[in-house]
Computed example of a mutant assay.
Amino acid sequence: MILKDKTLQKVTSPMAKAGQKQEQDVAFFLRRAFKDHPNVFVINDFKFTHNNETAQIDHLIIYTYGFILVESKSITGEVKVNEVGEWSRSLGNKWSGMSSPIKQVELQQKLLREMLLENKADILGKVFGIQTGFGGRSWDNLCAVSSNAIIHRETIPKGVSRQLVKTEFLVEKLHKIMRLSLDMIKKVNLFDTRAYFNNEELESVTSFLMAQLKPEILESDKTENITSPATQNISEIKTDSLLECKACGEKSDYSPQYGKYGYFIKCNKCDTNTSMKIPCLSCNSKSTKVSKKNTTYTLSCTDCTSANVLIS
């Protein structure tokens, strides 16, 4: 399931354009592979702040057994890594050093783990009075480079080589790391001894992470408009005229949240969860989609292309 798509920025330099194109390519393969998978969640452009430090993870994958961080890197020439982990790349006929994307993603992982551990009580709670945590879950990092890059694997340290993958082989590599059985839609493989998240824990982890998303910069001269024509003319409608608790009918005293099945409201009076995905207000079609930008939730219809603000 894709929790957050890649956000396109208006960039001008050739290097920035190439970097964004590489992230788009990786996001495309992840979407094709996991958009309908109930046990794999993908957050593209996961930017968060913890302990006064900010990190941006190109692609964060949360699945039954843990987490995988993927760093996208546009490299169209050759790439080498020496025995101490120092990277170099070719630009035309010249070689130059470059920062290690593996070290970069390791720092991002460290901050993410610290944030999750500090909030484990709120995220995972207790089971039979025992404080649960994130112990035993898998943590993996990968660097996805451009498909036309030339990788000198014969001289790259084995540990780095295992983390370095061309974009078209990324999904295959992810399947080998995750090792999800075919029957995992209904249950966990009883013969797998890895620590795992159950469905409720996965929902709690992903909801917590989505709540940490740092607001995007929305200045018109910095962000490319990638919305459909329908969402450019959004009808402002009061929240209480659109959403209400399915149990008690409450129309205002609720909080928006995200879970395994998408965006929903949690009633503060009766604790009932109600999906934000409602039929289109214009044509009554059920082919609708809820999206979030900062604190605004929008309902868009794919049939009549209308859009309405649910919460702002």
Rank of each mutant, 00 (worst) to 15 (best):
I2L: 07
K4H: 15
K6G: 01
L8Q: 15
Q20V: 09
Q20K: 05
V26T: 08
F34V: 08
K35C: 02
V40L: 03
V42L: 09
V42N: 12
I43D: 01
K47A: 14
T49N: 08
H50R: 11
T54D: 12
T64P: 00
F67M: 12
K73L: 02
G85F: 04
G92Q: 07
W95E: 11
S96P: 03
M98T: 12
M98K: 06
S99Y: 10
L107V: 10
L107I: 07
L111C: 09
L111R: 12
M115N: 10
N119T: 05
G125E: 09
V127C: 05
G133M: 02
F134H: 04
D140H: 14
N148C: 13
A149W: 00
I150D: 10
R153H: 14
I156H: 03
K166I: 04
T167Y: 00
E168Q: 12
V171S: 08
H175N: 15
M178R: 02
R179Q: 13
L180C: 07
D183V: 06
V188Y: 00
L190R: 08
L190A: 13
T193W: 15
F197V: 00
N198D: 13
A211W: 00
L213A: 01
K214S: 07
K222Y: 11
Q232R: 15
S235R: 14
E236C: 06
D240M: 13
S241H: 15
L243N: 02
L243M: 03
A247M: 05
K251D: 03
Y258D: 03
Y258N: 12
N268W: 14
C270S: 05
C280K: 01
C280I: 01
K286M: 06
K286C: 04
S300I: 01
S306A: 10
A307E: 04
I311E: 10
S312M: 10
